[in-house]
């Protein structure tokens, strides 16, 4: 228990993953439904549909950037070079189980797309 306390509470030595808002016009986003009971995304009311990306990084690094709460943190959806590991994953329709936006909103303005998607961006690429 002491070792757990030291690792998880004192050092914050663990990965955190979370969903961040995603702009479907610039990236391939995952599709989610606000209503958790709805299993099939096609049944979700349009108002409840949201787009997201998945971020995974070390808690200690994130706390340095954002503190304990990431809701108002501008660095929550970007990786920095100082981090041990950080990845932002976008939806890959080829990947089984991924629910991506069926409409490609990016076709009208591909030049402004930073970065190319679908892909996973890691801090080593930044």
């Amino acid at each position: 228990m002491a070792a757990s306390y030291y690792r998880f509470v004192v050092l914050d030595d663990y990965l955190v993953s979370y969903k961040m808002d995603c702009d479907p016009t610039v990236a391939s986003c995952y599709l989610g439904c606000q209503d958790l009971i709805i299993a099939d995304i096609s049944d979700c009311p349009t108002a409840d549909v949201f787009y997201y990306t998945k971020v995974e990084r070390y808690a200690a690094d994130l706390i340095k950037l954002c503190g304990e709460n990431i809701t108002a943190c501008p660095f929550a959806n970007t990786c920095t070079n100082q981090e041990r590991s950080c990845s932002i994953s976008f939806c890959d329709p080829q990947k089984i189980g991924s629910i991506c936006d069926p409409v490609d909103h990016r076709s009208s303005d591909t030049a402004s797309l930073p970065p190319q998607s679908p892909k996973t961006t890691t801090n080593s690429e930044l």
Partner: peptide, 12 residues
């Protein structure tokens, strides 16, 4: 307390 048991947390 090691990664064999637990390595991270989904805060969503």
């Amino acid at each position: 307390h090691t990664n064999l048991n637990l390595s991270g947390f989904n805060i969503t």
